[in-house]
């Protein structure tokens, strides 16, 4: 009895799990679940599907070069039973998988480092390009006005319409000056402050 590897996604297929397809040239394909089987029948390439191990390995998403990955092997030559050897192997398996899990965690952490900065930059870009869609006055600002100055709902709305309290969205980095056409037709110039620094940079 053997734990086979799924042809499609490389998951283990335990005895009694999944399905095996024997092609008419006697080649066998073992699948761990119907998802893999169906995808195979649709003639999809496992290298191009993000959820397979083949893809993850090729895309550098998983640890591939490591000494802990050298132990597992499909052995086709039988070894005579030796109680001591089995006990030792079982102990080693525990230890190796422990070390491997630890290294995989470190690998994942290193791979995802810098993700936060990337996301922040992306968010900034979004606010910068689509700032005109933001509400003119924040909810917290409205609440503050209602509490401190005792304004009515209508008064606050009026203020909002006038754009009295509307903040100018800031321009980050070396962005150029750009004009924005608001939904209501007004035009807003952004990034005037950056003008000087731009010239200095170009000189």
């Amino acid at each position: 009895m053997r734990i086979e590897t799924c042809y499609f996604c490389s998951r283990p297929a335990y005895p009694g799990k999944g399905i095996m397809f024997c092609r008419n040239d006697a080649k066998q394909f073992r699948f761990c679940r119907s998802k893999c089987h169906k995808n195979f029948k649709m003639k999809r390439n496992p290298r191009k599907l993000k959820w397979t191990k083949a893809f993850r390995k090729a895309a550098g998403k998983e640890m591939t070069v490591d000494s802990t990955l050298q132990f597992a092997a499909r052995r086709n030559v039988p070894v005579r039973y030796n109680r001591e050897l089995v006990a030792q192997t079982l102990r080693a398996m525990d230890r190796v998988s422990e070390i491997r899990a630890k290294r995989e965690r470190v690998f994942a952490k290193r791979r995802l480092a810098g993700r936060r900065a990337q996301e922040l930059a992306q968010d900034r870009r979004l606010v910068q390009t689509h700032g005109h869609l933001l509400p003119r006055m924040r909810g917290s600002e409205k609440r503050r006005l209602a509490l401190e100055q005792g304004l009515d709902k209508e008064q606050i709305e009026e203020l909002e319409q006038q754009g009295m309290v509307a903040e100018k969205s800031r321009v980050f980095g070396k962005e150029k000056i750009r004009q924005k056409v608001r939904v209501d037709g007004g035009v807003e110039v952004m990034g005037e402050g950056e003008d000087d620094t731009m010239e200095v940079d170009s000189d």
Binding site: T5, R74, V77
Partner: peptide
Amino acid sequence: EAEAAIGLRTDN
């Protein structure tokens, strides 16, 4: 290739 993806080689 499927086996190589999980670090499984063949040892004969």
